[in-house]
């Protein structure tokens, strides 16, 4: 067996372990929490009184206008000087959640506004409250519209979690760096790490298209465009 293959095999488990214990949970948790933040921000920006809208817009402006890596550094290395100490994993979780929240809020807002006013009125005409109309009529249709861009956000997020290596989270990429530090084989290790990321995102892409099919089963306008 060639040396490079030997090295790949022996490092495979440490890398995959970093992926399964840190990369995947970090991505899934921050995406779920981020979606909740994104929905809240979208609803605030569409329906809430002006001052709240300003707060929400300010948040989106800050997050979208600054690099994610810098945000992570502020949270993990910066906040301790202000007396706020956060462990690496929760710091990464907060950073990614805030990031996902800001970006998905725009997607969710666009999806919500893409559902016609007539659907709100149909819901109101049978006596629904605003909350019922939102939950049963608007949100399910908006979900279908938002699914493709949200899927893309999630796949980007999985790859972006490698930035957590820079704030000492021992995830997949950091495991690769550690092994490189002792083996001096950057090409082999980083390609191996890349392949594992590729496998993760391929699985997610397949999952995304299954979800889209399921949400698209009622046919209608999206189908007619094709």
């Amino acid at each position: 067996m060639p040396d490079w293959l030997q090295l790949m095999l022996t490092s495979f488990w440490p890398l995959l372990r970093g992926g399964l214990i840190f990369t995947v949970p970090l991505a899934i948790l921050s995406f779920i929490l981020g979606l909740a933040v994104g929905l809240l921000v979208a609803v605030v920006r569409l329906f809430a009184p002006k001052p709240l809208v300003w707060v929400a817009s300010f948040y989106v402006w800050i997050i979208r206008g600054t690099p994610l890596l810098v945000q992570l550094f502020v949270i993990f290395y910066g906040l301790p000087s202000a007396g706020i100490l956060i462990d690496a994993f929760p710091a990464a979780l907060i950073g990614f959640t805030l990031n996902v929240g800001a970006y998905t809020s725009e997607v969710i807002r666009a999806a919500l506004t893409s559902i016609s006013k007539g659907q709100w009125e149909a819901a109101y005409s049978i006596g629904m409250t605003t909350r019922q109309a939102m939950g049963r009529t608007i949100l399910p249709q908006a979900t279908r519209v938002a699914l493709p861009p949200l899927g893309n956000s999630f796949i980007s997020l999985v790859k972006d979690t490698s930035l957590a290596a820079a704030i000492t989270v021992p995830e997949l990429f950091q495991q690769a760096q550690r092994i490189v530090a002792v083996t001096y084989e950057p090409l082999i290790l980083y390609i191996e790490a890349a392949l594992i990321y590729l496998a993760f995102s391929s699985v997610l892409t397949a999952l995304q298209s299954r979800l889209e099919t399921q949400f698209g089963r009622y046919g209608g306008f999206l189908e007619r465009v094709r």
């Binding site: 007539g118 659907q119 009125e121 149909a122 819901a123 109101y124 005409s125 049978i126 006596g127 629904m128 019922q132 049963r136 009529t137 399910p140 249709q141 279908r144 009622y218 046919g219 209608g220 306008f221």
Partner: peptide, 30 residues
């Protein structure tokens, strides 16, 4: 409003619910 029903020019059925679910919606949810 719950004493009225409305029929729209462009129908406005709920596209993500089956025909029967459209008719059941007001009874079940409201």
């Amino acid at each position: 409003r719950r004493r009225t029903g409305m029929i729209f020019q462009n129908f406005q059925l709920f596209p993500h619910r089956r025909v029967i679910e459209n008719v059941m919606e007001g009874l079940v949810t409201v």
